[in-house]
Design a protein around this nucleic acid. Structure first.
Length: 927
RNA sequence: GGGCGUUUAGCUCAGUUGGUAGAGCAUCGCCCUUACAAGGCGAGGGUCAGUGGUUCAAGUCCACUAACGCCCACCA
């Protein structure tokens, strides 16, 4: 009932109630259908909370899911959460640290219990927030990466890869995080340029201690682990020294001088110290040269050398001491400023140490080959396409993947060792025991798997694999993966590799890569910068004080608080208004262009909130004029007006566009089309024109029915068009409108997405309506320029109308006089002497508004002069082209004809304008 | 070092196969007209980063340059 609709749209009243009713009625469950459509969510951290990137991504996935559901597909948006090993463990450790407890105090079992407790406590946050986003999710199908089924999939995959020789264990140099005490993969290391020094050290020659080699290093402390000095075998300066030794300072060791390509004669002195256990390049040199691996660090990256004066010192403290000791010994040649790339762990920010340990690896090259091929062959398509280059670049040079982590939260590696150190990889302890024999005393590997290992299985593990399930058969391969470019390597590539290996099929057919959501200045949103927007705050609104509190609380660097507070107060002096989910989603859709980051612009949210209000009020108007009245629900004669035929035609065209835009992932264009259809066409023209019929005492029942029916039906279709972007408001309005439009169904989300019908497009109606619009607009233009009140009815004289135009005036005089607010329309012949008037041109037809008290001749002259200038500019441009022989010879006929038409129009306009200006001037002189 | 992206109105962004630039917000003017002032009507505002080329015609295609940004690799 229309009186249920307030005259202002208030999202808070409708949104939560609607979501609850959807969920209570199990409306999200997939309906059986022949064709399937499936998207798996990039699983967020189970204990995390929703940020703008999620909100954007979720909007896109929900939009696609809702569209396909309406299209009639059996849809599954598979959601779930990730255990996020390191991240989650760190959070819990930090919480324990507040009580001065370490995980080691608790022990493994107790600590893991604590994590499960934390998951139970905070694990619902992000799924609650997803609901607030309006996500159409069958929550019965929610999964977690450490669910039993998914864990079994992990074990199955591990065992099979091991059996196929694609997983191995080995002692090698890995990226070691000395704070976390775990290995991390290459991808988890971020290198940033930092200011450092290049120390030039003197290594005395053993057989001639008075001479020395100078080696340059950025890491003097690793000198303790040097195994050689390398020179380039082609380097004349040092070639003769190869095979001799130097006295390694501070250690009493002698190390060989070796010839190796690795040494660059151009760099520094051309001599390089080789520390195979603490540098990736040196490790390779060491292998080539058969050097010892001399480990000098412990897991904390402190010096670990019994009997050494540096034993137990942190690496950076040791560096200082070693440099000063060398200096005292006269072995420090020089120190130069040097910029270098410092590797840091992406979680801890601590400097990563190349460290020699036993780890598990996946041999990825054979898997990568197949994974490259499916993208090359187009079995998987990146959208936008250029991301496939990024993918190829990485895949072509892929390194083995270190998958073991020395943490406790995660999937324990399914490998057992007997008392002799033999390893048994198996799905269960029992299976391992039976492999090892009854006498073996087995202990399971202490390590857990990289979180991304289980994520790599997500598209099929969530569907029940390795079991044969109906879901897997129905939905796999999934249709599209929606994700950010930042995890193409971490996740997308690995899903493709594992998907192909274990299912023989691609995991998804398309990968939609979206940009990062940044703040208005283009900065990444981060807690430490204090520029984070919480999607929920945009939905519900937030007071300034609460926002300041939120942004300044719990900062890593508390001294930033003052600056952040100031910024926030300046940017949001009144806090943030409650814009509602639909406006936020519409904003994301409108910003979802391909291949570009998003600068999040709050003014757009506001404008789309206003759009919601517009739609809301247009619906109110429709309801006020149709409820309790005959809207042609039952077949009966209807007479359609020009406006009716026009809006129906336009609706068809918009429906056609909408489907194309969604299928092409152009949600920005979709948003734009629907916005302008609703606002600029349905509201600004159509709704206004219906008032003429509906307020006409002489209108016939058939006319009234026709207009009401069109009002309601077009609105109902428009709501369906909008529903994938704005689920809440469309549902709320649809529930009011559906009886009037004679449509059935419990919820708009199960209605069919509008299908355009070519036969309903009335080309003549579009042409005529365009003509009506131009007549009204040109008179409005004069009103605007002359500051004539919109309510003031104007007498209009028409001169120079073609027969078609004359008949149009006759036919549509109601529209023109009533909507255009014309007092009268009188036809003049060309020979009639027209009074002094302001003049609007529509083609060759002239609309004259006789000068009265409200029209100022001077203002009219300046208005006409402006138009004249424009006409002259057009003439200059177009005639220039047309007089160019090459253009006339080579351009397509249609282009030439169009130019000729433009020229004719502009010239005729110019003629009329000049004439009018002269008349005005003459009028002024006689006045 | 290699690769990718961006540069269009004051701001945020569109611009399909080359045919002479659009939207929202902001600005200015007039209107509280019974769906909506979160509104209506109108207006102003751009040598499309630069240079050169292809073409009858370039924001659009090609080459180079500049600025900004991202990714990968890396000389110790």
């Amino acid at each position: 009932m229309s009186n249920a609709l307030d005259n202002q749209y208030q999202p808070s009243i409708i949104e939560q109630a609607i979501y609850q009713s959807w969920e209570a009625n199990n409306a999200f469950a997939a309906r059986e259908a022949e064709s399937a459509y499936c998207i798996v969510i990039p699983p967020p951290n189970v204990t995390g909370s929703l940020h703008m990137g999620h909100a954007f991504q979720d909007t896109v996935m929900d939009l696609l899911t809702r569209y396909h559901r309406m299209k009639g597909d059996q849809t599954l948006w598979q959601v779930g959460t990730d255990h996020a090993g390191i991240a989650t463990q760190m959070v819990v450790e930090r919480r324990l640290a507040a009580d001065n407890i370490s995980r080691h105090d608790l022990g493994r079992e107790k600590f893991i219990e604590k994590i499960w407790e934390w998951k139970a406590e905070s694990g619902g946050t992000i799924t609650r927030q997803l609901r607030r986003m309006g996500a159409a999710i069958d929550w019965n199908r929610e999964r977690f990466t450490m669910d039993d089924g998914l864990s079994e999939a992990v074990e199955e995959v591990f065992v099979r890869l091991y059996e196929d020789g694609l997983i191995y264990r080995g002692k090698r140099l890995v990226n070691w995080d000395p704070v976390l005490h775990t290995a991390v993969s290459d991808l988890e290391v971020e290198s940033l340029e930092e200011n450092g020094s290049l120390w030039h050290l003197r290594y005395p020659l053993s057989d001639d201690p008075s001479s020395h080699l100078i080696v340059a290093t950025t890491r003097p402390e690793t000198l303790l682990g040097d195994a050689a000095v390398a020179v380039n075998p082609d380097d004349e300066r040092y070639r003769h020294l190869i095979g001799k030794t130097v006295d390694l300072p501070l250690t009493g060791r002698k190390i060989p001088i070796v010839g190796d390509e690795h040494a660059d004669p151009e760099f520094g002195s051309g001599c390089v110290k080789i520390t195979p256990a603490h540098d990736f390049n040196d490790y390779e040199v060491g292998k080539r040269q058969g050097l010892d691996l001399i480990n000098v660090l412990d897991i904390n990256a402190c010096i670990d050398l019994d009997g050494s004066p540096y034993h137990g010192m942190d690496r950076f403290a040791a560096r200082k001491k070693i440099v000063s000791d060398l200096d005292q010994a006269g072995l420090l040649d020089s120190i130069k400023d040097h910029k270098l790339m410092v590797p840091r762990g992406d979680r801890t920010g601590s400097v990563i140490e190349p460290y020699l340990t036993d780890q598990w690896y996946v041999k990825v090259e054979p898997l990568a080959k197949e994974a490259i091929k499916v993208v090359e062959d187009g079995d998987i398509k990146f959208v936008p396409e250029n991301w496939s280059n990024t993918y190829f670049n990485w895949m072509n040079d892929i390194q083995d993947w270190c998958i073991s982590r020395q943490i406790w939260w995660g999937h324990r590696i399914p490998a057992w060792y007997d008392q002799h150190g033999n390893v048994f990889v198996a799905r269960t302890a029992e299976e391992a025991q039976s492999k090892a024999g009854p006498d073996a005393i087995l202990e399971q590997d202490e390590d857990v798997l990289d979180t991304w290992f289980s994520s790599a299985l997500w598209p099929f593990s969530t569907l029940g694999w390795p079991e044969k399930t109906p879901e897997f058969d129905k939905y796999y391969p999934t249709n599209v993966l929606v994700t950010g470019f930042d995890i193409i390597f971490f996740w997308v590539a690995r899903m493709i590799m594992f998907g192909l290996k274990f299912t023989g099929q691609v995991p998804f057919k398309e990968v939609y890569i979206h940009g990062l959501v940044r703040d208005l200045e283009g900065d990444k949103m981060s807690k430490s910068k204090g520029n984070v927007l919480d999607p929920i705050d945009l939905i519900d609104g937030i007071e300034l004080e609460a926002l300041v509190e939120k942004r300044t609380k719990g900062l890593m660097q508390p001294k930033m608080a003052a600056k952040i507070e100031k910024q926030t107060r300046k940017q949001f002096p009144n806090g943030i208004e409650a814009y509602g989910t639909d406006a936020l989603r519409f904003t994301f859709a409108s910003q979802a262009t391909l291949g570009r980051d998003i600068r999040f612009d709050l003014t757009r949210v506001e404008s789309y909130r206003n759009f919601c209000n517009k739609l809301w009020n247009a619906s109110r108007y429709v309801l006020m004029n149709t409820e309790g009245k005959d809207c042609g629900q039952v077949e009966a004669t209807v007479k359609l007006s020009l406006a009716d035929k026009w809006i129906i035609s336009r609706l068809q065209q918009v429906e056609k566009e909408a489907v194309e835009q969604i299928e092409n992932y152009r949600f920005d264009q979709l948003a734009q089309s629907l916005y302008s259809f609703v606002w600029d066409e349905y509201c600004s023209w159509y709704v206004e024109l219906t008032k003429i019929v509906l307020n006409d005492e002489n209108a016939t029942d058939a006319q009234l029915r026709g207009t009401r029916r069109t009002l309601v039906r077009v609105l109902e279709s428009t709501l369906r068009l909008l529903h994938p972007i704005m689920p809440f408001i469309t549902e709320a309005l649809w529930q009011e409108v559906k009886p009037l439009a004679a449509v059935e169904g419990d919820t708009i989300m199960n209605c069919v997405y509008p299908l355009y019908d070519e036969s309903k497009i009335d080309q003549q109606a579009i042409e005529d309506m365009t003509w009506v619009q131009s007549v009204i607009t040109s008179v409005r233009n004069i009103r605007g320029e002359m500051n004539i009140s919109p309510g003031k009815a104007l007498p209009i004289l028409v001169q120079g109308a073609s027969p078609k135009e004359a008949s149009n005036i006759e036919l549509h005089s109601d529209y023109l006089t009533k909507f255009g607010r014309f007092e009268s329309m009188s036809m003049l012949t060309d020979s009639d002497q027209a009074p002094e008037s302001a003049t609007a041109l529509v083609g060759d037809m002239r609309l004259l508004i006789p000068l009265g008290s409200f029209i100022d001749a001077n203002a009219e002259i300046s208005r006409l002069s402006k138009e004249l200038e424009k006409a002259e500019r057009d003439i200059a441009g177009v005639s220039g082209r047309l007089s160019n022989k090459a253009f006339v010879d080579k351009a397509p006929e249609a282009v030439i004809a169009k130019a000729q038409q433009q020229l004719d129009d502009a010239e005729s306009a110019k003629f009329t304008l000049l004439e009018q200006i002269e008349r005005m001037q003459a009028f002024l002189e006689n006045d």
